[in-house]
Amino acid sequence: MTGNSCIVLPDDYKGYNLEFFCVPRHYEDSLESILIPSGLIQDRIERLARDIATNLGREPFAALCVLKGGYKFLADLLEKIKQCYRFSAVNSVPFSVDFIRLQSYEDDHSTGKVKVLGVDGLSFLQNKNVLVVEDIIDTGKTMQVLLEILEKEKPKSVKVASLFMKRTTVSSGFRPDYVGFEIPNKFIVGYALDYNEYFRDLNHVCVINEHGKEKYSKKNCKLSS
């Protein structure tokens, strides 16, 4: 189902049964369903890469990845952007990569406060085209804080690419320039999206179940970030 230039998963979308795909055995009892298989994720990223490369034209850009969940999306997206340039003699352009950390979640709840880490030394973004790469947009408030920070550096332009955007009644109304999937208001894990630092090693994007939330809650786990 397609709309607003992204794939929209309706609220009653159930995803796929775990038995149809391979997931790490240590997570089998902690997942409700596979929302988006890894192959579909890769195909969607390929199209996003083509759209971004087309829109940038011959303009160099700086990719700014939001850690930690965005690192896998960044790597796959940039690789596919390079492939687009490789087959276009006129559009090949250089790009740089940097990283930033934003923290607003504890377990599966937003704290309502945004902690910004690693923002020192962003003056190199001045007069540059910036592509912010994020894993998921929830309320949009966290991204708006980051965009306010970036605006102070006076970049030439800023575009946001997010692999997922969640439909929620508490949304600020912010919408990225590039969106892979619009999803229901469910807590997802996998493809580098975590729950207290777990599930990043899961290739598919899955819905965590209540047992998984309890099993990997901070009170039960001592895994450091």
Rank of each mutant, 00 (worst) to 15 (best):
E153M: 13
F95A: 09
F95H: 13
L131S: 00
V160K: 01
E197A: 11
V189G: 04
P10L: 04
E134Q: 01
G140V: 00
G15L: 03
F21M: 06
V116C: 11
E210F: 03
D43G: 05
T142R: 01
V207I: 14
D201E: 09
V160P: 00
K213I: 00
R175G: 00
E148Y: 02
L18M: 05
D135A: 06
K152I: 09
A192L: 04
F87C: 09
N209G: 08
S30A: 15
K219D: 10
L56I: 10
S162L: 09
L18F: 04
V66N: 05
V130F: 02
Y71E: 08
I183E: 07
E79G: 14
G3I: 12
A75P: 01
N17T: 06
K219G: 00
K166I: 05
L102H: 00
S92V: 02
Y27G: 04
I52Q: 03
V66D: 06
A75H: 12
G69F: 05
C22N: 12
P10Y: 04
P37L: 02
A63K: 07
A89Q: 10
V158S: 11
V207E: 12
G190K: 04
D108C: 13
G3Y: 12
F20G: 00
R44S: 01
K213Y: 00
F21G: 09
L146T: 07
